[in-house]
C-alpha cells in the first residue's frame, strides 16, 4: 500500500539527489522546490557527494514498528560537505567508536520491512569514510 510513496522517493534515497537554488546557490536536501533560504523556486537537480561528518548521534533500543528487528541501531545527524544536514542510520561501524565530527560517507542499505507483506524499503545510511580510517 505504501509502495508508491517509497518509489516516488527513490531518487533522493538511493542517489542523494537534491537541488541547488539558481538564485542563491544554496544546496538543498531533501529536495523541496522552494529554497528555504531565499524563498524562490529551486528545481535544478544536484547530486550530493554523499560525504559529510557526524553532527550528533545516538542509539535506538526501543524501536518503532518496522524497525524492531534492527534494534539497537545508531542514528545520526550528518552535516553533508555541501552544507545541508540529513538524518540517517550509521552502519558498518565495527569496533569504531562514533564521535561528533567523524567523517562518514553514504551507502545504500535496507531501512526497514513494512507491514505483513514485508515491503523492503531501501535508502541511504552512512558509514565511516574508508579513506579516513
Amino acid at each position: 500500500m505504501e509502495v508508491s510513496r517509497h518509489w516516488r522517493l527513490k531518487k533522493e534515497r538511493y542517489a542523494m539527489v537534491g537541488e541547488v537554488c539558481p538564485h542563491c546557490e544554496q544546496k538543498i536536501f531533501p529536495p523541496r522546490d522552494i529554497c528555504p533560504d531565499c524563498g524562490q523556486e529551486a528545481r535544478t537537480l544536484f547530486r550530493f557527494s554523499g560525504r559529510g561528518e557526524v553532527y550528533s548521534y545516538t542509539t535506538v533500543y526501543s524501536a518503532p514498528t518496522g524497525h524492531e528487528v534492527n534494534a539497537p541501531y545508531t542514528v545520526a545527524l550528518v552535516r553533508l560537505e555541501e552544507g545541508p544536514m540529513v538524518t540517517a542510520q550509521l552502519t558498518d561501524l565495527g569496533e569504531k567508536q562514533v564521535e561528533i565530527g567523524m567523517p562518514v560517507e553514504m551507502v545504500t542499505r535496507r531501512l526497514r520491512a513494512e507491514g505483513e507483506s514485508g515491503i523492503l524499503v531501501y535508502g541511504y545510511k552512512f558509514r565511516p569514510q574508508l579513506s579516513a580510517s
Binding site: R5, L9, R13, P30, Y55, S56, Y57, T58, T59, V60, S62, A63, P64, G66, H67, N70, Y73, V75, A76, L77, V86, T87, A88, Q89, I100, L111, R112, V121, G123
Partner: peptide, 24 residues
C-alpha cells in the same frame, strides 16, 4: 515521515541528538 521516521528515529532519539550536541 519521509526523511526522519523512515530512518527509525524515535522521539527519544531526536531529543538525544539535540542533547548530545548541546552538551558538546
Amino acid at each position: 515521515a519521509d526523511f526522519e521516521s523512515v530512518q527509525g528515529i524515535t522521539a527519544a532519539a531526536l531529543a538525544a541528538l539535540l542533547m548530545r550536541r548541546y552538551l558538546n
